[in-house]
Structure formats: structure tokens, C-alpha cells
Design a protein around this nucleic acid. Sequence first.
DNA 1: CTGAAGTGATAAACCGGTATAGCTCCTGCA
DNA 2: TGCAGGAGCTATACCGGTTTATCACTTCAG
Lengths: 339, 339
Amino acid sequence: MARPTIADIADRAGVSKGAVSFALNGRPGVSDTTRARILEIAEQMKWRPHSAARALGASRVDSVGMVIARPARTLGVEPFFAHLLSGLQSGLSAHSISLQLLIVEDTDAEIEVYRRWSSEHRVDGVILVDLTVRDPRIEALKALELPAVVIGGRGGKGALPSVWADDRDAMLSIVEYLAAIGHRRIAHIAGTPNFQHTQRRIRALRDAAPRLGLIDAPSLPTDFSDAEGAATTRRLLSASARPTAIVYDSDVMAVAGLGVAMEMGVSVPGDLSIVAFDDSILTQLMHPALTALSRDTFDFGRQAAEVLLEVIAHSDRVINLRTADPVLTVRESTAPPVG
Amino acid sequence: MARPTIADIADRAGVSKGAVSFALNGRPGVSDTTRARILEIAEQMKWRPHSAARALGASRVDSVGMVIARPARTLGVEPFFAHLLSGLQSGLSAHSISLQLLIVEDTDAEIEVYRRWSSEHRVDGVILVDLTVRDPRIEALKALELPAVVIGGRGGKGALPSVWADDRDAMLSIVEYLAAIGHRRIAHIAGTPNFQHTQRRIRALRDAAPRLGLIDAPSLPTDFSDAEGAATTRRLLSASARPTAIVYDSDVMAVAGLGVAMEMGVSVPGDLSIVAFDDSILTQLMHPALTALSRDTFDFGRQAAEVLLEVIAHSDRVINLRTADPVLTVRESTAPPVG
DNA sequence: CTGAAGTGATAAACCGGTATAGCTCCTGCA
DNA sequence: TGCAGGAGCTATACCGGTTTATCACTTCAG
């Protein structure tokens, strides 16, 4: 009645445990006929491996982890993570690997989790998000010798494997579009400045400004919250030389910014064009619907899973996979500036 | 250099493996002085238990699972799950239990996951969400003898332990408020009709209608998507006898509904009051900000974790914990009807 | 002074797999 | 005919904990 073990199968098949193990794992050591018989019996007894037993013998647990260090309050609204998770799972479940997810308050707590996971052998590797400039997690993971893949930032000199999108090109596609329809005063409401992708976006805008003839192109850092997004928008729109277009680093901030504009009587897209550097249902729910940069986040996750499994299998390999470029979806929140 | 095992500790302390095990688990069998010495050495060697080894001996893996069967597309915008997850973790991490999360397409896939988790001994128990009317998962879990806790619906006759909020009272608090400020034509844009909580809300409204003197109080089912929320709103507002207030079963649908109203030139809250049966940043980002029913979802998760651990420890126990009542947060989207 | 009970420890079995050394045939080739 | 080599399988150690049977040694009651 209890779950069958390979010993039970061995009994029924009249062979040894070892033979059963060989047969079930598709490795040489048994004849084809014996193998078929064992598989047949295993199927019939509904045998499934005991993950702990496997983890104990071999040194893998068929499980990977991801820690998100952000306040839960802002997390829920970010469709990004839900899509990323789905993609990751889709990539992992193809290999029967399970995923551990943890949401913590800050990076210190995150590193603590890695330490625990490593010492308790709970995961074979981890996925890293929100890479910062001199990210302490990289050192920590190296010290633990825990395989890891960075999502959303090129590995850099520390050289962890990564899966990344080109933020520079993405920012360029946005400002080139805005410049093409006539905008010269473009502001950028950025995210946390010590995130690497934030920095790349800021640099991309600064570098492109002269070439596109932009009169003014400030990047204003925030903490990614709707509150700061709104406050910064208010400040921008109250200034004497107000921008004709604003690029927001997240869809949530863009929505908050749209609210401020409406409240101040600034019409969108008449007086102000708005672009969100991230897409989701949110942008489509608005009136006007927001022009936004769409990425295939699901696929992003799937690829990250593949790379992580590769890195776990061959710890020496360092892969830096560039994903498909994001595309700008033009909706109702952008138009040529008046005058 | 490799991670220390209890055998290493035993060597250093000059005692047997068994003694070390007793000492580390705080059970009798060693003297206080020996115990102290062993703990000291373990601390010094930074010993941590190997989760797989423990899982193999004892029959628990110190890990619980949660499966969400919803399309990822709608998931991300629901802050509900992010908060729930955080709460769950906070409840679990106090006992060093880890959480496995899986997002799947449908209930069949979900049950398949339970089967796999159970047979591979990957989790000690699971958390169930989105209970439906004759939910097939209950039977499946009983057959697997996998401990489970239902979130958001009283256990019912199948009698799984549960942590639930009173949807009936919640719906009453909304319509009583609307009736009190003068509304008599109230519509309810509901979620998936075979969710138990949807049914309870529908019944609560129907029962209260006569007492509150409501002229018309239809409940219109949807699939919880923004698209159906919008379409249903459009139908309602196009009818000859248009409602003066609409209650939406989710914040996403409420936002979509607000958009439709604005588009049709129906002013909110002048011509139409809107209430969302769920709160999040979303409702606060809107203009006007939406009146919404707020629940302490984090605490919900924390309590669910406690109950699950209790159930895992004593499989005979059936707990039905009612959580704090949700409260109505009145914002700018509700006002007395004109005329 | 003896026997019973209790304390503090040990050695060994066990959990369910994987890895490996070794054994028994059988075949092929010198 | 003899021997190397390989296929096919068994027996067993091992992974890192937990648990149990057992044992030596005190202590205390009778």
C-alpha cells in the first residue's frame, strides 16, 4: 500500500536493486528485455523516485531557487514577475526541476537565503534579478560556489552567466520614435539609480540626445514607486520649461504620471506624450492607453531556465545570452507636440 | 573544507553520531554539559542539516507547496497573490519551512502536480486557492493523503481545514453603504460563477436586496478579465434603466469599468458610483481613486501558514479559522446618486 | 549487599536511491 | 583448448541524517 521503492520493483522482477536503478535511468548494465520488463513493472506499480533519496546519493536536488528582494507592496502590480515565473517554470518543468520562490525585504536577507539554501542543499542553482552596480550577491554566490544566472544584465567582469535584453537599444528605439514625431524636450523618469539597467538607460538617453537634437533630456531617479513617479511628474510639469514627452521606467510609474497630468489639466497626448518602459495589462486599461515597450518576458524566463540548467550541468561554462529585442507598441498616449 | 556532517562533529567532540543528533535536536539522551559542547562545536564548524538526509530518515521535507491555476497574464496585476505569498513565507520561515510555487494552466494540471509532489515526497502539505463549487482537488488530495489548507472558503462538507474571510458580510458592508447614501439601482459585476466566493457574494446581494429596498440588483458573471469587465460595464451603461452604482468583484475589472464609463461620458462618481471588491495600489492610482474593500492579505497568508503547519503536525485536526473582517475604504469613486 | 531503575552514551540499522567492485557466463580469436 | 574481453547482473558500500537496541555505570530502595 505504501509507495513502492526500487527494492519492491526488484523483488517483483526477480532482479537486484542495482539492475532496477540502471533500467530506470536508461543507462547500460541491463539487457533490453530485462529493462523493458522492469520499466513495465515500475509503471504498473506507479513507482516514482523519492526526491530526497536521489538528492542524498547524487549531489543534486533537482530544484532551483529565485529570491526577489522588493517590498511585496510594489511587487504585486508588476506583471513582469508573474510572466517571468511562468516562463521559468515552463523551462524547468521540461526537465522535472522544481522552483523555490522567496520574497524578502533586502539584499542582506537575500544573501542569507542563499547561504541557507546552499548549506542545506536545497537548490542546485539560483536566478538573480535586479542586478545593482557593485552587487554584493555576486561575491557571495561565488564564495558559496552556487551556480547562478543573472537576468536582465550582462554578466560584466564578475562574469556570472546571464540572460539579458539590450536596454540601450530599447531606450534608443523610444527616443528615436519621439524625436521623429517632433519632440525635443524629453524627460526620463528613471528607476533606482543603482540598478544596472537603470544606468544603462540613463546613459543611452544622454548619449543620443545631441544626435537627435534634443534641447533638454534629464533623467530623474526614483525608487520605482508610484508615489515618487507621481511627485517627480508634478515637479516636471510645474517647471517653466515643461517637457513635451516623458519616458517612465515602469508601467506603474507611467500610470501614476498620467494621473498627475490629468489632475493638472495637462492633456495626454495633446500637451504631453507618455511612454512606459514596460508593458502589461495596466497600460492597456488606461485612457488613453499608454504607448509602451513590450518584451517577451515569458520567453525571457524560459531562456533563463535553460541557461541555468546548462550552468548547473557544466559549472565551468559562462553563457551570456542576448534575448530578442523589445519592441515599441504605439498606443494613444503619444502624438506630435503642439506648436 | 566540504560542508561538515554530524560525523565530523562527532569526531571533534569525541562522541558518537547518535549523541550529536540528540544534542542538535534538543532531545534527551545526552547530558547538559555534553550537549553544550556539541552545540558549541557545531556552531563553530557552521554545521547545517542536509535537508535531503533529514527528509530521507524522517518522513518530512520541511517544504510546502502552492499551485495557482490561472493564466499568467491576469496573475501579475493581482497584488493579492504577491501579498498572500509574502504572508505565507513570513509564517513559514519562522519554522524554517520553504515554499514551492507553481503556476499552471488549469485544474487538471494542478492535480497532476499534487500527484507528483506527493509521490516524490517534495512537499509536506499544500495551500489551495480559488475553491470551486464541487472542487475535484479536494477528492484528489484526500486520495493522496496530502495535508492541505483551503484559503478563502469555508471547508464545507468535504471538510478540508481552511482559513477564510466572510464574503457575505463583506458584500453586505458594501451594499449597505451604497444604500445608505441613497443608491437603489446597484449592479454587481461578479467573477467566475463556479468559484465559491463568487457564489457567496451573489447570494449575499440577492438576500439583502429586499431589505435595503433595492429596485434592481443583478449579478453578472464574468471570467475576472479586464475585457469581460469592460464589456459587461458597457452593456449595463447602455441599457435604458442604468444602475447608479456598480460593485466589481476585482480591482482590475473595476479599473476597466471606470475606463468604459469615462469613454461613454458617464461621470464618476456623479452619474455612477464604483466599488471594487479588492484593494491594491491600482485603485489608488486611478482618478478618481476607487472606493474599495481592503483585506489584510498578508496576515491571511501568515495565518494560512500556521494552520497548515498545525495540520501537517496533527493530521487528524480540522481547523476552520475565520480571519479579520475586511473593511470598506471610501475614496472618490462613490457619492450619492444625483436626482 | 543485592536488585531494580534510571542516566548517558554507543553501535548499528534504516530511509531510498546511486555508484562500484566483482562475479558468472558467453563469445571470439589465437 | 585456453584465455581475453565484454555483456549482464549481483552484492555492497555510501550519502547524512534519525532511531532503536543495547550496554556500562550510578544511585537508591529493600
